[in-house]
Computed example of a mutant assay.
Amino acid sequence: MTDNRWKPNVTVAAIIEKAGRFLLVEEETADGLMLNTPAGHLDAGESPAEGCAREALEETAHPFTPTALIGIYMARTRKGSQDVTYMRFAFAGELGEREEGRALDHGIVRTLWMTPGEIRASQARHRSPLLLKCVEDYMTGQRFPLSLVHVDSSVHS
């Protein structure tokens, strides 16, 4: 029997602010160079916070420690025959010093720091329609404790 149940793609994103600017990545996509927060798919065996720390390190070469959940977001993308829904867990946290010599993840061209105004002005280049909403929620002070996401021990076994 085929399982035809709908399943969203779970992603994690780091919303990293320093002196009024946000750390974004510029990455190669099928649609050209796009901007995103450090983000990616949740891997098997990791919690959303662990996945976020891993993705941030892979994409920016900076260790990242999530300290709060900003929110849980959903978006749907339709391109040709593709119809994909993403469920994004966005985290705020602490950024460590860049690990010199560490290569950025495949497809990541560079990291850059952008103001909220620059992020708003670049919406045509956002890889995710959730990028701006996550940044805006961060700017309003929206924070939830990490304990809001319960991870059963079976996830890590």
Score class of each variant (00 low, 15 high):
residue 44 A to L: 14
residue 52 C to K: 09
residue 50 E to P: 09
residue 40 G to T: 10
residue 72 I to F: 06
residue 46 E to D: 11
residue 56 A to I: 03
residue 43 D to H: 13
residue 73 Y to I: 06
residue 60 T to G: 00
residue 51 G to Y: 05
residue 47 S to W: 12
residue 55 E to Q: 15
residue 68 A to N: 12
residue 73 Y to T: 07
residue 39 A to F: 08
residue 70 I to M: 05
residue 42 L to S: 12
residue 60 T to Y: 02
residue 52 C to I: 00
residue 49 A to S: 15
residue 56 A to F: 04
residue 50 E to Y: 09
residue 75 A to L: 06
residue 53 A to P: 04
residue 40 G to V: 10
residue 56 A to N: 06
residue 65 T to V: 12
residue 49 A to F: 07
residue 51 G to E: 05
residue 49 A to K: 08
residue 65 T to F: 01
residue 74 M to R: 15
residue 49 A to V: 05
residue 72 I to Q: 08
residue 44 A to Y: 11
residue 46 E to S: 07
residue 56 A to H: 08
residue 71 G to D: 08
residue 59 E to W: 02
residue 46 E to A: 08
residue 59 E to N: 05
residue 73 Y to D: 11
residue 57 L to P: 08
residue 44 A to K: 11
residue 70 I to E: 08
residue 54 R to S: 09
residue 66 P to Q: 11
residue 52 C to D: 00
residue 39 A to T: 10
residue 50 E to I: 04
residue 37 T to Q: 09
residue 43 D to I: 09
residue 63 P to V: 05
residue 42 L to Y: 07
residue 73 Y to W: 14
residue 41 H to L: 11
residue 50 E to V: 07
residue 60 T to W: 02
residue 43 D to N: 14
residue 58 E to W: 06
residue 57 L to D: 07
residue 59 E to R: 09
residue 39 A to V: 03
residue 74 M to Q: 15
residue 64 F to C: 02
residue 71 G to T: 03
residue 62 H to V: 07
residue 44 A to V: 12
residue 74 M to T: 15
residue 71 G to I: 05
residue 69 L to Q: 05
residue 73 Y to K: 09
residue 59 E to G: 04
residue 52 C to G: 00
residue 75 A to D: 15
residue 69 L to T: 09
residue 67 T to V: 13
residue 60 T to F: 00
residue 46 E to K: 12
residue 62 H to Y: 09
residue 43 D to F: 11
residue 53 A to C: 05
residue 62 H to F: 08
residue 68 A to S: 14
residue 61 A to Y: 01
residue 69 L to R: 03
residue 56 A to Q: 06
residue 65 T to I: 02
residue 60 T to H: 05
residue 46 E to M: 14
residue 74 M to Y: 11
residue 66 P to N: 11
residue 53 A to K: 06
residue 51 G to F: 06
residue 45 G to W: 06
residue 37 T to G: 09
residue 40 G to R: 06
residue 73 Y to R: 06
residue 66 P to V: 07
residue 57 L to G: 11
residue 65 T to P: 03
residue 68 A to D: 14
residue 69 L to I: 03
residue 66 P to R: 09
residue 47 S to N: 11
residue 75 A to H: 15
residue 56 A to G: 08
residue 60 T to K: 02
residue 58 E to L: 14
residue 37 T to S: 13
residue 68 A to K: 05
residue 45 G to R: 13
residue 55 E to F: 01
residue 46 E to Y: 09
residue 42 L to V: 15
residue 48 P to C: 01
residue 44 A to G: 12
residue 51 G to H: 07
residue 63 P to I: 03
residue 72 I to H: 04
residue 70 I to A: 07
residue 47 S to Y: 09
residue 39 A to R: 04
residue 68 A to T: 11
residue 47 S to V: 10
residue 62 H to Q: 04
residue 45 G to P: 11
residue 66 P to G: 13
residue 38 P to W: 02
residue 69 L to D: 02
residue 52 C to F: 01
residue 40 G to A: 08
residue 63 P to C: 07
residue 52 C to S: 02
residue 37 T to L: 15
residue 45 G to T: 05
residue 74 M to H: 15
residue 61 A to P: 01
residue 45 G to D: 13
residue 46 E to I: 06
residue 46 E to C: 08
residue 57 L to W: 11
residue 47 S to C: 03
residue 72 I to V: 14
residue 61 A to T: 02
residue 74 M to G: 15
residue 67 T to L: 10
residue 70 I to R: 03
residue 72 I to Y: 00
residue 50 E to R: 12
residue 66 P to S: 13
residue 53 A to S: 13
residue 49 A to Y: 02
residue 60 T to N: 10
residue 61 A to W: 05
residue 59 E to C: 03
